[in-house]
Structure formats: structure tokens, C-alpha cells
Amino acid sequence: MSSFYDAEDLWYLTHGMRRLVLVESARDAQRLQEVEDELAITHRQFDSKGHQLYAHDLQLRRGHDVRVVPLPPGGGARTRQRGSGLRTRGGGTSRRGRGTGDDSE
């Protein structure tokens, strides 16, 4: 058996490899599209459930004095309870009036 290939043998080998790569690439692209489609469907279902839960929550609160307002960017209502956490000198937790540049303290 010869360890050398002539030009025609090399052409058929490379042509076969190219075809294989193209077929695999097409399969990968098709599978990627299927996954993207499934993801889009899942996002729509998730959004739909979120809207259903929001509407249900409003129905549960019906009869109460409830206002629905958008949350400010970067967070919502304070989560710490009053008086929790470390206390500074002076014992107060209020920061009103401080940090105004007034050095008279």
C-alpha cells in the first residue's frame, strides 16, 4: 500500500470532508434555530404567567386602598425596618439635615 496520494485522491478526500462539514454546519444551524424558537416561546409563556399573576394579585387586593405605581430605577421600597442595623454615635438612625456641608457640629 502506498503512503502517497495523487491529486485526484486528495480532491475526493477534501471534497468529502467539505461536504461533511457543510452537512454538520447545517444541522447545527437548524438546531440553533430550534433552540432560539423554543426560548422565544418560553419567554412569551413566562410573560403571560407574570401578567396573570399581576392581575390575580390585583383581584385579591380589590376592595383595599391600593395604588399600583412603577418602581424607581435601581430598586424599590426600603427593605430595612426602622431601627434595625448598627447605630452610630448619637443613637439616632435619621440622616436628615446631615451631609449639607455644615461643619458646625
Rank of each mutant, 00 (worst) to 15 (best):
Asp6Gly: 07
Leu10Cys: 02
Gln81Ala: 10
Lys49Asn: 10
Asp103Arg: 13
Gly76Asn: 03
Asp102Ala: 01
Arg27Val: 07
Leu71Pro: 00
Gln81Asp: 10
Leu71Gly: 00
Thr42Gln: 15
Ala55Glu: 12
Arg95Ala: 14
Arg62Cys: 12
Met17Glu: 13
Gln45Cys: 04
Glu38Cys: 00
Asp103Gln: 13
Asp6Lys: 03
Phe46Tyr: 08
Arg82Thr: 08
Ile41His: 08
Ser104Leu: 09
Pro70Val: 05
Phe46Glu: 03
Leu58Ser: 10
Leu32Arg: 14
Thr93Gln: 07
Ser84Gly: 04
Asp102Ser: 04
Asp102Thr: 01
Ala29Gly: 00
Ala55Ser: 12
Gly83Trp: 00
Asp102Gln: 04
Gln33Gly: 07
Ser94Leu: 04
Asp6Cys: 06
Arg89Gln: 06
Pro70Tyr: 00
Gly74Ala: 01
Gly74Asn: 07
Val21Ala: 11
Thr88Ile: 12
Gly16Pro: 06
Arg67Leu: 10
Met1Lys: 06
Ala77Ser: 11
Glu105Pro: 00
Thr88Ala: 15
Ser94Tyr: 06
Ala40Gly: 10
Gln33Met: 08
Val23Leu: 04
Gly92Ile: 03
Arg67Tyr: 06
His15Pro: 06
Pro72Asp: 01
Leu10Trp: 08
Asp37Asn: 04
Gly75His: 05
Gly85Met: 08
Leu32Asp: 14
Pro70Glu: 10
